[in-house]
Amino acid sequence: RFRLSPAARNILEKHSLDASQGTATGPRGIFTKEDALKLVQLKQTGK
């Protein structure tokens, strides 16, 4: 289970993504908004 920032949680839910597909870069291993946006971008480019 990942620790998600509220913004990251919202983005992941909106795009039906799972945090385990990305890398948490925030302090103390928190999955940040920026991490979520990177994951969305990867999904949109098909990689």
Rank of each mutant, 00 (worst) to 15 (best):
residue 36 A to H: 03
residue 10 N to H: 12
residue 17 L to T: 08
residue 20 S to Q: 09
residue 29 G to V: 01
residue 15 H to W: 10
residue 17 L to R: 00
residue 4 L to A: 06
residue 45 T to S: 15
residue 39 L to D: 12
residue 25 T to D: 03
residue 26 G to Y: 01
residue 38 K to F: 01
residue 32 T to S: 04
residue 10 N to C: 12
residue 37 L to Y: 06
residue 4 L to I: 15
residue 34 E to W: 07
residue 44 Q to E: 14
residue 31 F to C: 10
residue 14 K to G: 11
residue 7 A to N: 05
residue 28 R to M: 13
residue 20 S to C: 08
residue 46 G to V: 10
residue 26 G to D: 05
residue 6 P to L: 10
residue 11 I to G: 06
residue 29 G to C: 01
residue 40 V to G: 03
residue 32 T to M: 00
residue 45 T to M: 10
residue 8 A to G: 12
residue 11 I to M: 04
residue 3 R to P: 11
residue 10 N to Q: 15
residue 30 I to M: 15
residue 3 R to M: 12
residue 31 F to W: 02
residue 19 A to Y: 10
residue 8 A to P: 10
residue 19 A to F: 03
residue 13 E to W: 01
residue 22 G to M: 07
residue 40 V to I: 06
residue 24 A to N: 08
residue 12 L to S: 07
residue 39 L to H: 09
residue 16 S to N: 14
residue 23 T to I: 13
residue 37 L to W: 08
residue 22 G to A: 07
residue 21 Q to M: 13
residue 29 G to N: 06
residue 34 E to P: 01
residue 24 A to P: 10
residue 35 D to S: 01
residue 2 F to R: 02
residue 7 A to H: 02
residue 15 H to Y: 11
residue 17 L to A: 04
residue 2 F to P: 00
residue 33 K to H: 13
residue 45 T to N: 15
residue 45 T to H: 11
residue 22 G to Y: 02
residue 46 G to K: 06
residue 5 S to I: 12
residue 3 R to Q: 06
residue 8 A to V: 02
residue 25 T to R: 03
residue 39 L to K: 03
residue 32 T to I: 00
residue 12 L to N: 08
residue 9 R to C: 00
residue 39 L to E: 09
residue 9 R to V: 10
residue 14 K to C: 08
residue 28 R to Y: 13
residue 13 E to I: 10
residue 14 K to A: 14
residue 47 K to G: 09
residue 42 L to D: 15
residue 36 A to Y: 00
residue 44 Q to N: 07
residue 26 G to E: 03
residue 28 R to P: 06
residue 15 H to R: 00
residue 12 L to T: 11
residue 4 L to S: 11
residue 23 T to S: 11
residue 28 R to G: 15
residue 29 G to P: 03
residue 25 T to S: 09
residue 38 K to S: 14
residue 6 P to F: 07
residue 39 L to C: 01
residue 45 T to P: 07
residue 41 Q to H: 05
residue 11 I to H: 07
residue 25 T to W: 00
residue 41 Q to T: 12
residue 39 L to S: 12
residue 30 I to P: 07
residue 38 K to G: 07
residue 32 T to W: 01
residue 23 T to A: 12
residue 38 K to R: 14
residue 4 L to E: 12
residue 26 G to F: 02
residue 14 K to L: 13
residue 15 H to A: 09
residue 40 V to L: 13
residue 27 P to C: 08
residue 36 A to G: 04
residue 12 L to Y: 00
residue 18 D to T: 09
residue 26 G to I: 01
residue 36 A to K: 03
residue 38 K to T: 02
residue 26 G to C: 00
residue 10 N to F: 15
residue 46 G to S: 13
residue 28 R to Q: 08
residue 13 E to M: 02
residue 30 I to A: 12
residue 10 N to A: 14
residue 21 Q to N: 04
residue 9 R to W: 02
residue 16 S to E: 14
residue 6 P to C: 14
residue 43 K to R: 09
residue 38 K to L: 01
residue 9 R to H: 09
residue 19 A to D: 07
residue 32 T to E: 05
residue 33 K to L: 06
residue 32 T to Q: 06
residue 32 T to V: 02
residue 35 D to K: 01
residue 20 S to E: 14
residue 20 S to G: 10
residue 21 Q to T: 05
residue 38 K to N: 09
residue 22 G to F: 02
residue 47 K to C: 14
residue 30 I to Q: 11
